[in-house]
Every structure is written in C-alpha cells, then in structure tokens.
Simulated scan of single mutants.
Amino acid sequence: MRSKPLLRVRKTGALMVAAVIAFVCAVPLAGAMWQLTPVLLIPVVVFVWAWRAGTDVYADELRVRALVGSTRVPWQRVSELAPDAGGQISALLDNGNVIRLTGVTSDNLPRVLAAGGQQIGHSDQPPS
C-alpha cells in the first residue's frame, strides 16, 4: 500500500458546496416528474469530481487524479513546470508530453515543489 501523499492539492471546496446546493434544488424538480430523476446525477457527479480530482505530491512522484483514474508521473520525468494564461500549472515531460496538474496554480506551486523536495530552477538566459 502506498504511503500518504506529502501534499494534496484539490479544486476549491466551493465546487462541492455548489454541487450540494444544486442537488438540493434539483430534488423538487425530480420529485415533480419521475422522468427528471436523472437530473440528480449531475450534481452528484460534479461533487465526486471536485472531491477526487487533484494532484497528490509524493517525494518520488506526482499523481494527477481525475474523476476516473489517475496518472503517476515520476519527478525524474518532469522537465519543466509552466503556467498557462489562466495560472494553471502543466508539467512538460521528458518525452514531450504535457500533463495539466489539476488544482495546482501559480500561487501554490512553491508548496508543491517544496513538498516534492524539488528546487526552483533558474534559466541561464536573461529575461527578454
């Protein structure tokens, strides 16, 4: 069995609260017509996704979790961590693939690197 992650980075808890509110609001709709009961599944799926999706940081790897399944990425395979325009962080791997790190933003990236025992690398090139 795998040890506990050093750090768990998840989506904001506001998504789970919104899913609970949506579920409660959908109950009267589903109660009015039994054909509408599948509408209740939408907030349930959103809640489970918000609870499960994220990035777990271990000393030797990152585990990016989705609604179903997860991807393990050893730190040795990560060439670069870079933000996109929205501030979300993606990992560029040594084989050229890019994996978006769910829940990791520019704001919490230093905590992710510290938990994984990684150092922030600096380019030898001057900024342009």
Rank of each mutant, 00 (worst) to 15 (best):
S123E: 05
A114F: 14
A19V: 10
L29P: 00
S123C: 01
G54H: 02
V17D: 05
V57M: 04
V24D: 02
S3M: 13
G54W: 00
H122P: 03
W51D: 07
V48W: 07
L7K: 05
A30N: 08
P126H: 00
G31F: 05
S79A: 13
R72F: 06
G116V: 13
S70F: 04
F47H: 00
I99E: 03
V78K: 12
H122Q: 11
L40W: 04
T105R: 06
Q125F: 08
T102V: 14
T37L: 06
N108F: 03
R2G: 14
P126Q: 03
L15R: 11
P38I: 02
M1Q: 12
M16E: 08
T71S: 11
F47E: 00
E61N: 13
S79Y: 03
A59K: 12
V39W: 09
L113R: 03
W49K: 10
L92D: 12
A14E: 06
N95G: 00
G87W: 11
L6G: 15
D107M: 15
P43A: 05
D84P: 08
P5D: 08
R52I: 02
C25G: 06
M16Y: 03
M1L: 13
A115S: 01
L101I: 06
P38K: 08
V46R: 00
L15A: 10
A26P: 09
R111K: 05
M33L: 07
A59F: 10
V104P: 07
